[in-house]
Design a protein around this nucleic acid. Structure first.
Length: 581
RNA sequence: UGGGGUGUCGCCAAGUUGGUAAGGCACAAGGUUUUGAUCCUUGCAUGCGUUGGUUCGAGUCCAGCCACCCCAGCCA
């Protein structure tokens, strides 16, 4: 996708003004970064991407695209204990699926480990970093508290030579985990705890998914991130609000390092004098009600089997939304609509639903599927005269073509479209009342057949042969209901999803454990649903509007020729539900 | 009680140098309709956390106050 042809795409939501775009435009005007815009999306491969990440992806790739820049994909893989190749692969696929293409190859912070190590040596040589031999517990005590300053580590004044030697030994793997750490020498009394001699490197004898067993020491996020940005010549390093307090450290590290060495290690093709440091800018992360958005919790839902995997259609993960039937376009539009600002808020899930309805309304072909079949026999319809009806696939878009469906004596309608004692304003079928079968004839219910338990098991109706494609004269038929022919209908499974949590904010302080408000009815599996025959050849992931029901897609994993499985993406808007309660 | 942030309609969110409150979602009321869908029309903040101040004029400037969020991982 390119920025230039956006204006001709009426469907696309054009980028809204936001404070980050303002900053970039100002920088472009002042020539701060030599007119360049370089961003990056830096996930840690320790879980699947969720819609909160989509906001960041859309932002980073979006601004790069708007201003003729590039966006890198960099895996922030500095903590091998929690990371894996599986996550790397899944994340890359999700980004591609969302519709974005990163600049060049995938990058890894781990591929900068050598450079990062050399920069650490440089800091030691400058007297700006030292090897600390306090245990993690002791370090915590020395750090002080939010309201009281910390205390200098007894190892803070080690000589440069000693630090260099110790760091070399750390790097050589001569010490056990936790024995020492490399710390920046800043200010133990700083009111900003991130500046109280933060740890730069820790000892961890663990395999890394990219570098194997090459390294016994791993850099910390704060140390690695800013340098990685600088090496990739990132101009605007966009991250979420909780990193605000880290910005002074981000700047301190880059400013303490030799600019020319940073330039030399970077992607820059310009002279070292043209080299400009990246600027970190924070924005509010995305929250949506009735769900949780932290990786830790999502992972817990998966490992404790509250859902069926990261791509369970109830999950706010990109793979879950994809399986649910959300399109990349709808998610991008949603992110655009939600906007980017510095105030932390919670977006209503209704906005997400609006975005997918909007997309699918214009792009999903229509079909009929009866979720709770109720047999209807047309008493006056000839036994031996089935006929083929040709219905448009879309009410407004002829280009989407037509599909065929047979009309016969025995049909199924949805049990919810019949009431023996209809409530006020009811526009569906009830005894002695007429209703239009969508795309077919007008029928009237003559008789209700019940079983021994008194349940309605069949309706005996009569059809008006004069009403195919025309309205009857002299009377108004209020309702239109969907149906399928009994003999050729497909037997399908339909999975009805509802919100995963029944509380707006599962993270609210008044709730002890977010899992308390897990919605027990978030998944309803309907078997024996009857779908129109044209759906037989529906491809995996294909979306349809089941008329009067909602949007559904073919499950990309569980659906096959023997057993067709549909997932309900979202219902249609339903003003009747509001009236009827 | 330290530091860093944020407060504009029920929910998001625009608001250049102060000049008289965009848009979307939701909601409501009409119209069209062989989907109670879509679509169309209309309505929806004399008000911008609050109290003062500056000014001819303040959401925009100043001061105080209040509320909420983030930070004490050798996680990111």
């Amino acid at each position: 996708m390119s920025a230039s042809d956006d204006s001709t795409t009426n469907n696309a939501t054009s980028p809204a003004s936001n404070f980050i775009r303002h900053i970039i435009e100002q920088d472009l005007q002042s020539g701060k970064h030599n007119g360049r815009v370089q961003t990056r999306f830096p996930p840690e491969p320790n879980g699947f991407l969720h819609i909160g990440h989509a906001k960041s992806i859309c932002l980073n790739f979006g601004v790069a695209d708007s201003y003729g820049g590039q966006c890198n994909l960099r895996f922030d893989d500095t903590n091998p204990e929690k990371e894996s190749q599986e996550y790397v692969n899944a994340i890359a696929e999700d980004i591609r699926w969302l519709g974005f293409q990163w600049s060049g190859d995938i990058r890894y912070t781990s591929s900068y480990f050598d450079a990062l190590h050399d920069f650490a040596v440089q800091l030691i040589e400058k007297g700006k970093a030292y090897v600390c031999s306090l245990s993690p517990e002791q370090a915590r005590e020395y750090r002080g508290t939010l309201t009281s300053p910390g205390t200098d580590s007894p190892y803070r004044e080690r000589s440069i030579e000693e630090n260099l030697a110790l760091f070399a030994q750390m790097r050589a793997g001569e010490f056990p985990d936790g024995a020492h750490s490399l710390r920046a020498k800043i200010d133990m009394a700083s009111p900003n705890i991130n500046m109280r001699d933060p740890v730069l490197y820790r000892i961890r004898h663990v395999e890394h998914h990219q570098t194997g067993s090459k390294w016994p020491i791993y850099p910390m996020y704060d140390y690695a991130h800013c340098i990685s940005d600088a090496m990739e010549c990132v101009t605007h390093s966009l991250c979420t609000l909780e990193f605000e307090d880290h910005r002074p450290l981000y700047d301190w590290i880059l400013q303490t390092l030799e600019s020319k060495s940073l330039s030399a290690a970077s992607d820059s093709t310009r002279a070292a004098s043209d080299y400009v440091l990246p600027r970190q800018i924070e924005f509010a992360r995305l929250n949506i009600n009735y769900t949780v958005m932290s990786k830790r919790k999502l992972k817990e839902l998966v490992t404790e089997n509250h859902v069926n995997g990261w791509d369970d259609p109830r999950m706010p993960t990109l793979s879950g939304l994809r399986r649910r039937g959300f399109t990349p376009e709808s998610i991008r539009n949603f992110c655009e609509r939600a906007g980017v600002a510095r105030s932390a808020g919670t977006v209503d899930v209704g906005m997400l639903e609006h975005s997918i309805r909007e997309d699918l309304d214009s792009n999903a072909p229509r079909a009929m599927c009866v979720l709770r079949p109720l047999k209807v026999t047309l008493s006056n319809y000839p036994e031996d005269k089935p006929q083929t009806l040709v219905l448009p696939c879309h009410p407004k878009n002829e280009a989407m073509g037509t599909r065929e469906i047979s009309f016969a004596k025995t049909l199924y309608i949805d049990a919810t479209d019949f009431e023996e004692v209809p409530p006020p304003k009811y526009k569906r079928l009830s005894p002695r009342v007429e209703v239009r079968l969508r795309g077919g004839y007008v029928i009237r219910c003559d008789e209700v057949v019940k079983n021994a338990a008194g349940e309605v098991i069949e309706l005996l109706c009569s059809y008006d042969p004069e009403t195919l494609g025309v309205n009857p004269v002299g009377r108004k038929v209020k309702g239109v209901i969907h149906w399928v022919p009994a003999d050729t209908a497909l037997d399908v499974e339909v999975r009805i999803y509802d919100r995963l949590f029944n509380k707006e904010n599962p993270d609210d302080k008044s709730i002890a454990d977010y899992k308390e408000c897990l919605n027990p009815d978030s998944l309803l599996v309907l078997t024996g649903c009857k779908a129109e025959p044209s759906l037989k050849t529906a491809a995996a992931e294909a979306s349809f509007q089941f008329e009067r029901e909602g949007y559904f897609c073919v499950d990309r994993h569980d659906s096959n020729a023997e057993k067709i499985v549909f997932n309900r993406t979202v219902t249609l808007r339903d003003s009747w539900a509001k009236i009827s309660g």
